[in-house]
Nucleic acid binder design. Structure first.
Lengths: 146, 146
DNA sequence: CCTTGTTGGTTGCAAAAGCAACTACTATCA
DNA sequence: TGATAGTAGTTGCTTTTGCAACCAACAAGG
């Protein structure tokens, strides 16, 4: 039998932590707005960084374009998001938040902030900073610079 | 517009990191043994902690019992795992690794170790320890003591 | 213009996850 | 006993994913 313990295996540990820390929050956007996780992420990108195309969201969020396509579809149906034609390129469409979407975003960002604070309530300032830094480095693992 | 950045939002960051760090390894057990993630996890528990029932694996891994049930089914088909009857309780069955399963486990643990080391190659000893500790605390978030 | 290649986005289908209901067995307590 | 409740594990069905093929629009070179 090996000395290797799953509790030190990063992919496993990250998954467990991700699942555990997501549940509370995902329950909220699910209950309040019937949104899926990809929908929340798309909504977030529009709310936080302004109008943009689906492709741009894909670059920032690293979500696959089919997921984004379906999420946008759902958000448009819910009247959270509208598609705007782009004059110069008729393939593309700029996505923009509608008032309902903006309100949902405002609400959820507040919740997210609070949730984030709760999660790290027991961490020291130094721990928080180092944790965030390590996670960002891991999330960028093997990303070749463009 | 808010000052809240997704790059400091723990559930998001953890998900990104988890996905990124999992890909390389999952590709290996997928390619070499046609295994799914839940199957690898079940195999791991048996290899690392010895024979046990599906329910016990569920307690340790926090995987849902239907996922475990199907994973066990697949592992039995692959002849990686066998079911043993339990005399005292005919509902339960002890799961045990067969030689093929043992070999796969041995192989994959080696890969996992190396992968884990690679992931943290750029981290200092202190960073590693703190990261693991923080993740374990997050993974246990809101777990009530039994 | 017309071919060839690329990009933005969608669709269809097969694999996988999630949830509830189910079978079979055990435990408790009257 | 025998009715009730609880546990081990499985099955069926619906919702989500993941992948590949696809359409429509642009771009570049001849």
């Amino acid at each position: 039998m090996s000395d290797f313990d799953l509790r030190n295996f990063l992919p496993y540990l990250l998954n467990q932590a991700a699942e555990k820390t997501s549940i509370g929050f995902s329950q909220i956007y699910k209950d309040r707005y019937r949104m899926l996780r990809t929908e929340w992420r798309v909504l977030f990108h529009l709310g936080r960084y302004g109008d943009m195309t689906a492709t741009r969201i894909g670059q920032l969020s690293k979500l696959h374009k089919t997921k984004i396509s379906r999420a946008v579809h759902a958000l448009v149906e819910k009247k959270f998001v509208a598609r705007l034609e782009v004059a110069e390129d008729r393939r593309a469409e700029i996505l923009t938040l509608l008032p309902r979407g903006q309100r949902a975003f405002d609400d959820l960002v507040g919740v997210a902030k609070q949730h984030n604070a709760d999660l790290m309530a027991n961490f020291s300032v130094g721990e928080k900073a180092l944790l965030i830094d390590c996670l960002q480095r891991l999330a960028a693992f093997e990303d070749l610079p463009d």
